[in-house]
């Protein structure tokens, strides 16, 4: 069973920031009155003087981070994905993206797995928004181990990085000795020759489950964890398309503008291959317990397997 150990990536984010803060004095964490929810409260407790609460004013928070970065600080701006990429989109674009400043943007509570808070808080467009900004790196880790590795790698990269995290506790899928995280390098988690599933974040564990379900029906799917959505690991996507000739993308994001779009952008130009985008089909989310929503929107192992089986 995969579900031996579960932890939300927002929780891992807070913990990873503490570790990073111990090693680097230039790390600052900014919040907009959501430190309890983004879990950066862990950092606040460890380094109160390096935690800046900007109040409920996300646009200003992003600008403050830009100014701090021009003076050599490495700010991690934290809020819900909806607010930090949506409300403050133009500030991220013009105050961080255009001058290519060294600011890390941590968006927690992404996707429908926010649960009961409903559509206003369930950001399904953040990847699309951040991916469109020139020079922005976009990462969504799958579990606790990957979150820690991603935070470290984001710090080491000089430039803006968007990091997407979830509210829901997710199983650890990367607990193995040879685990290595490299920005822009996808990871093949399961071999298979019939079709390829490319996914990231919370859907990684579900896709591994779906692959097992499909396997029982005689269909062997390879599963790629594409933790970095931008820059996309083009080499790996092309290799998979060449091999299985059938691609499914799975994400807890709108089918418009996310990983599915990125994969289609690439394949339509370089190696036309049939792609099915599994995700949120251009609708808003709704209130409900996270697991029930994931089931309703077809993003649990069973739902993903079903959609793949019907379309393969």
């Amino acid at each position: 069973m995969l579900e031996t150990k579960k932890i939300a990536t927002r929780e891992s984010y807070g913990n990873a920031l503490v570790e990073l803060g111990k090693e680097h004095d230039d790390v600052l964490v900014l919040d907009a009155d959501l430190a309890q929810a983004t879990k950066t409260c862990t950092f606040k407790k460890a380094f109160p003087e390096r935690h800046i609460d900007c109040g409920i004013a996300e646009a200003n928070m992003v600008g403050i981070a830009a100014g701090l970065a021009t003076c050599g600080k490495v700010p991690f701006v934290s809020s819900f994905a909806m607010f930090v990429t949506g409300r403050a989109y133009e500030q991220v674009r013009n105050s961080i993206g255009y001058p290519h400043l060294n600011v890390k943007i941590g968006g927690t509570h992404a996707g429908i797995s926010v649960g009961e808070d409903g559509a206003t808080h369930q950001c399904l467009e953040d990847i699309a928004l951040m991916r469109a900004i020139p020079g922005m790196t976009v990462i969504c880790p799958a579990d606790d181990i990957e979150t820690k590795a991603a935070i470290k790698a984001a710090y080491e990269l000089n430039g803006p990085v968007y990091l997407r995290f979830g509210r829901l506790a997710v199983p650890v899928v990367n607990d193995r000795e040879d685990y290595k995280f490299e920005i822009g390098k996808g990871v093949r988690l399961r071999e298979g020759s019939d079709l390829t599933i490319i996914t990231y974040g919370l859907c990684v564990a579900a896709c591994l489950e779906a692959a097992e379900i499909l396997s029982k029906a005689g269909c062997e799917a390879e599963v790629i964890n594409m933790h970095t959505i931008k820059p996309l690991d083009e080499e790996l996507v092309l290799e998979c398309a060449e091999k299985t000739k059938r691609i499914f993308t799975v994400e807890e994001h709108s089918v418009i503008g996310g990983l599915g779009s990125a994969v289609c952008d690439l394949l339509s130009e370089k190696l036309p291959t049939k792609v099915t985008r599994i995700g949120i089909n251009d609708v808003f989310g709704e209130s409900g317990p996270a697991q029930e929503l994931i089931h309703k929107y077809g993003l649990d192992g069973e739902g993903i397997a079903k959609q793949i089986w019907q379309n393969k």
Binding site: I52, A59, N60, G63, I64, A66, G67, A69, T70, N94
Partner: peptide, 19 residues
């Protein structure tokens, strides 16, 4: 600091003052 989209520069300046 790059600027041009109104309203954003004062936030960046405030970040510099905080630094």
């Amino acid at each position: 600091m790059s600027s041009g989209s109104l309203g954003q520069g004062l936030s960046a300046a405030t970040g510099m003052a905080l630094a």
